[in-house]
Amino acid sequence: MSLMLMLGISLTVAAGVLLALSRDLFRLIVGLAVLGSATNLIVFMAARPGSLIPPLVEAGTQQLSTAAANPLPQALVLTAIVIGFALLCFALVLGAWLAGNSAGDADQLRDAEPAATDAVKPPVLEP
């Protein structure tokens, strides 16, 4: 793997974290998507791909050629892409539903917290 890719993935992770730390609910979810993609790349690159040949057993042979790409990270990442997709779809819908009450402000989500009138927990002060 080249230094260029290492730099590229690191920059993407940094951007993803910054997006995920946003107060805007939509940017937060997009940040998760970017981080997901970057993580997939890290896993994929961990096997140091170099071959262009897909991991297919060629007709007439009984086993995978040693020149073919490593199939293991591909299987891992394929699973990760699908699961990440499902979770992001859910996050987008959930975000849209929550945004109805909070105008998309991630700092105004109170649904899971104790009620502001709870005696033990005084209302949260705005920063």
Binding site: S10, A14, A15, V17, L21, R23, F26, D105
Partner: peptide, 26 residues
């Protein structure tokens, strides 16, 4: 999602440091 939140992001510097640290860590 309505209109984008136009208010300033709180903790901007902390967020920035965290992002840079995450990138460097990666």
């Amino acid at each position: 999602y309505g209109r984008a939140v136009s208010r300033r992001e709180p903790w901007r510097w902390v967020n920035g440091v965290l992002a840079v640290a995450a990138g460097a860590g990666t």
